[in-house]
Nucleic acid binder design. Structure first.
Lengths: 178, 178
DNA sequence: CTTACTGTACCGTCTGGACGGTCTTGTCAA
DNA sequence: TTGACAAGACCGTCCAGACGGTACAGTAAG
């Protein structure tokens, strides 16, 4: 909304995600984030008066980017493709990045499980929306859950699939979603 | 009320899981576990000399139970059912319990992400095994990932599905796995 | 003068874990 | 049968360190 000058905010958020990924979700301390962001602790507390606000910022940023990407994927290349198919493609692309990218979520959960509720309601709404747009419920269920599985693997950094297998999976899902 | 048999160990493990679920994964302190288990802190440290050992115990217990349940599901009711189908049924049953049951995993990850490696390799082996037993790779991929998604939802306590939907999903997967 | 910080010093709380003590049970010689 | 003694299981306390957060003086830019 404001904060025209400071890209400090973004730097701090990025630093927090980095620290969580590299040093482990349990080592996300304010000191670590500040030094990683190249900012003094006072400066960090200036942007995020409390650790909870920091986490909240992480969540909000994540959700905002997700929503933007989703909307973009829907509007683009819409060559007769179903919304479900667009979601599958988007998610597959997300999970191809080797970085788990969102392991800060574990930090947030450890801090307070309630940080998950915005994410939960977001997903709930997404699913509800897809239900309204997908004729066959069975296809939706299978595809949505499989994508959820892919995301989970990415998050836990425990990808069991080879490149070929992932590609085969995605094409199978797209066929189901057709 | 002394002279305890070493079922203290099991009580402690159960208490740790309870504390993680109820007070949040970040509040799994030795004191909390000890008092929950009805054991002094010294007694806890006697059974698990370090917090890391406690986590390790949690992981090992979890994996052992999983393996036993899997083997039981394979051998039982094998009315011509494929191993993949057995795995689907077992997992669906697991996820029907309303308790997330394994949210201590978040505590373990926060403590040290390396606690996940045994779980990762276990899953890797399971997947490899299923690959050897399932004729159609596409079916396996879709079903395995969908189940993974179900587990993830259960773990994050963010179940988007209704009872009916979950049932429909499982039957769809079983048909695919047929 | 305001905004956006930096830098340092400090406080209260919580946590893991080390330590020494205590109670119970098992073993075995006399 | 008994008494001594060792080992196992557990208790309760204490402590050093880390962490979140506060306070405050200073500063560079617009």
């Amino acid at each position: 909304m404001k904060a025209r000058r400071p890209n400090s905010r973004e730097k701090i958020l990025a630093a927090a995600a980095d620290v969580a990924r590299e040093s482990g979700p349990g080592s996300l301390s304010l000191d670590a984030v500040a030094s990683r962001a190249g900012v003094s602790k006072g400066g960090l507390l200036y942007n995020f008066p409390t650790k909870a606000k920091l986490m909240q910022g992480l969540v909000e940023d994540y959700l905002r980017e997700f929503e933007e990407a989703l909307e973009a994927a829907r509007q683009k290349d819409s060559g007769g493709e179903s919304p479900l198919a667009a979601y599958i493609r988007l998610s597959a692309r997300d999970c191809e990045e080797t970085q788990p990218s969102a392991s800060w979520i574990f930090s947030a959960i450890a801090e307070d499980p309630d940080f998950m509720t915005p994410i939960k309601t977001f997903k709930q709404q997404l699913f509800e929306r897809l239900k309204g747009e997908t004729p066959d419920l069975k296809s939706l269920l299978v595809c949505y859950l499989a994508i959820e599985g892919l995301r989970s693997m990415n998050l836990f950094d425990s990808d069991v699939l080879s490149q070929d297998e992932r590609q085969l999976l995605v094409s199978s899902l797209l066929e189901i979603a057709k």
